[in-house]
Simulated assay, not measured.
Amino acid sequence: MTAASRTPRPRTPRPRARLPWAALPRELAATVEARLRGGPVARAEDQTGGFSPGVAVRLTLTDGRRAFVKAVSPEQNPDSPHIHRAEARIAADLPEDIPAPRLLHSFEQDGWVVLAFEDVPGRTPADPWDAGELRRVMDALDDLAVRLTPSPVAAPPAAERLAGTFDCWAELAADRDAGTDDLRDLDPWAAAHLDELVALESGWLRALAGDTLAHGDLRADNILLTPDGRVVFVDWPWACTSTPWFDLLCMLPSIVMQGGPAPEGLFKAHPPARDVDPEAVDAALAALTGMFLVHARRPAPPGLPTLRAFQRAQGEAALSWLRTRLRPRLRA
């Protein structure tokens, strides 16, 4: 599964450049330096991955200490500060044996929410996916599901975390029935089977009930591969309690989007998905697909102009997988 062996595919949608470290208010940068207690910043390496419009930077201080710092204010996006606060709560409580960066500090100043983590040496997986790296990540994900069952931290259940985002087919059907959405730009198969998708999606609450701590937003740009062979999972604001297979299911559309193998075989090959009720998987996948495709039809959020294209690409991969699973139940 190398780049040469894959069929041509659209380029993965990319986030726009984040706010650079140099754009932070001087007083805020000084507070970061004081909290880290390693002297002034000697080097700042701005990071461009992910879909937050705020600062993401690797800092080296004059005494050699390193840290990864994230900072955002409502000026970049009104929802992003809430997301950073949620991440701080989860990160502060994650046990040390979980492969995630340790939270060093979190604070708020003049409307900014700042998080400082240990700097993990590593890189994101190759795009398109490399077969060896994918096996490494999938094995780590299997192990993560075991370590996080039952959840070692207090986190909202999936029913609470996903409320309002996993009922999108029903929302779309209501708009169709009200005459406010003609579904013209929706995938024709999805438009033709919208009522069936609404019924299928309605089972997600029951399907995703569980006591495993799920990351909730796993994809390649939230994973670091370290030189010493570790796989580290970063960015935990969407963590919730759910099933051991929820993270695997959520990640597979992005793997397909980035040149990986067909999702069904990969899903069935991993322990968290063994002996799972197929109807529960269908319900969760239908809800996930609806979230991606319906959100992709909305205007871009402030500061995130490429997010909708990224959601659409994952939604198209998820819909293809869903159609495969539903054959021959839903023909045409």
Rank of each mutant, 00 (worst) to 15 (best):
D130V: 07
A220L: 11
P253D: 07
P150T: 05
R135S: 14
F246P: 03
S242M: 04
T165F: 12
E160Q: 12
A155Q: 03
L197P: 00
E264S: 14
Q258E: 15
D217G: 05
D130L: 05
L208C: 08
L225M: 12
P237E: 03
V234A: 01
A174Y: 15
L266Q: 14
P272C: 09
L224K: 07
F233W: 13
S242W: 02
M251E: 10
D228Y: 09
L197S: 01
F267C: 09
S254I: 08
L141T: 15
F246Y: 14
L213V: 00
R219V: 04
D167Y: 13
L183I: 02
W236V: 05
D247E: 08
V146G: 03
L205E: 08
L252V: 00
G265Q: 09
L208V: 07
D187A: 12
W189F: 13
H193R: 09
M138E: 13
Q258K: 13
D247C: 08
M138C: 11
G265N: 13
T149D: 09
P157L: 03
A262P: 13
W189I: 01
D217K: 02
L134M: 10
L249H: 10
R219A: 10
E264F: 08
L224G: 08
Q258M: 11
L144W: 15
C250G: 15
